[in-house]
């Protein structure tokens, strides 16, 4: 048991390597925020495409559903590996310059951007389904009232349905964001020096795993408050519902 303590809770090592692991965590945070924002936006786009009305737009709906099924059904790690492995060659094949195939935008290395792409594509699909449940949860009367007032489908979505839908699904969206943040660690497999990789580097050099524990603690510093925010949001909505004030 002492061995476990020594291997994982060497506070001296944690102190020594704190800056290095923190640098890794900063990568994690940046990747999380950029991918998270993009996924939230992309997810909404997908959700809206998925429920465009009318027979003529059936192919659009079909393609969107296929996309969502694909990225919900394939592990994120595979998506990371496939994008990272193929992107330079696909870009070359399409005649795109190397600055696209091996993106080094804003001083961030290419694994960062491959990771962003993979996370956005995948989590966009998850979030699209969350938005969808929000949209479908808005009572049908809302759309009817909006249409009866002369609003087009698009206007009704924009001003009436989507604002209500999004408000409803803030907890699951936040939960998805927390999951995304943890999943950024998968991008370590293509050598992005995020917090888990930083921990593993220290582990390989020192044969001690305390940097991993340190990484876990850094995660908790962010994810715990986020989880509490979600809980409070849910409780507040519950309270309103019980007092009979929430929307029918």
């Amino acid at each position: 048991m002492d061995v476990v303590f020594e291997q994982y809770f060497d506070f001296g090592l944690m102190r020594d390597e704190f800056g290095f692991v923190l640098d890794g965590f900063w990568q994690t945070v940046q990747l999380s925020i950029i991918s998270g924002v993009l996924a939230l936006a992309w997810g909404l786009v997908l959700a809206l495409l998925r429920q465009l009305p009318g027979r003529g737009l059936a192919p659009v709906r079909g393609l969107t559903i296929a996309y969502i099924d694909l990225f919900r059904g394939v592990p994120l790690l595979l998506v990371v590996l496939i994008i990272s492995g193929s992107f330079p060659f696909v870009a070359e094949g399409l005649g795109l310059p190397q600055s696209i195939g091996i993106p080094q935008w804003f001083g961030k290395p290419d694994p960062f951007w491959y990771g962003t792409m993979a996370l956005t594509l995948t989590y966009g699909a998850y979030m699209a389904e969350v938005y969808r449940s929000g949209i479908e949860g808005v009572p049908g009367g809302q759309m009817e009232a909006a249409r009866a007032l002369g609003m087009s489908h698009g206007r009704a979505m924009r001003h009436v349905i989507v604002p209500q839908a999004v408000r409803r699904v803030i907890p699951p969206l936040l939960n998805d964001f927390i999951a995304l943040m943890k999943d950024t660690s998968l991008v370590g497999v293509i050598a992005l020096l995020e917090v888990v990789e930083a921990g593993r580097t220290v582990q390989a050099e020192t044969l001690n795993s305390s940097a991993l524990t340190l990484g876990a603690l850094m995660f908790l510093v962010v994810t715990l408050p986020l989880a509490r925010i979600v809980d409070r949001y849910i409780a507040r909505e519950q309270g309103r519902f019980q007092r009979g004030l929430a929307t029918a």
Binding site: P139, Q142, A145, Q164
Partner: peptide
């Protein structure tokens, strides 16, 4: 049109 369930925009 005015509906039985009012259908006011709650937000």
């Amino acid at each position: 049109m005015v509906f039985q369930q009012f259908n006011l925009f709650p937000h």
